[in-house]
């Protein structure tokens, strides 16, 4: 019974401390995130030449949505992503059968590359090779 009491006491105290510590950590993380956002807003405002106060933020918010960091719209990013994937696929299909037999990234695909590399290294097309 003593052991059970000790175990329960330890659980209450231990979990209480763990929760308390992690709540403190959560608060600290939120503060860091808040200062980070604040700093970014101030930098953005300085770059666009407008003051970084709440009124200015409101006015800026009403006027236009925030620009993405890359300067590209969502549609442009999607189009680029599709183009990259399509290009990779076309290149794979155009490649030699040995290379396109297996999905790039797989061990078997890597093995093919090793095989081809060895083939080149030995230069079988050269006389006396």
């Amino acid at each position: 019974m003593d052991n059970l009491g000790f175990g329960l006491w330890l659980t209450a105290l231990g979990m209480g401390t763990v929760f308390l510590l992690l709540v403190l950590l959560m608060v600290a993380l939120r503060v860091i995130a808040w200062t980070d956002r604040r700093g970014r807003r101030a930098r953005d405002a300085a770059a666009s030449g407008t003051p970084a106060g709440p009124a200015a933020r409101g006015a800026a918010g009403d006027a236009a949505p925030a620009e993405p960091p890359s300067g590209l719209t969502d549609d442009e990013v999607a189009a680029i992503a599709i183009a990259v994937v399509t290009h990779a696929r076309v290149r794979r299909l155009q490649a030699a059968p040995a290379m396109r037999e297996h999905e790039p990234g797989s061990h078997l695909f890597a093995n093919r590359w090793v095989g081809i590399g060895r083939g080149y290294q030995q230069q079988p097309w050269r006389r006396g090779a």
Binding site: N3, L4, F6, G7, L8, L10, T11, G14, M15, V18, F19, L22, V23, L25, M26, L29, R30, I32, A33
Partner: peptide
């Protein structure tokens, strides 16, 4: 992913209950 969503910290805390419950079982 944790910095993006700090409230997930609480789930990390909850995941440690097993330590103390097992401790009670071991004591018993």
């Amino acid at each position: 992913p944790l910095l993006e969503n700090p409230k997930m910290v609480l789930l990390g805390a909850a995941g440690q209950f097993g330590i103390f419950l097992t401790l009670i079982l071991a004591l018993l």
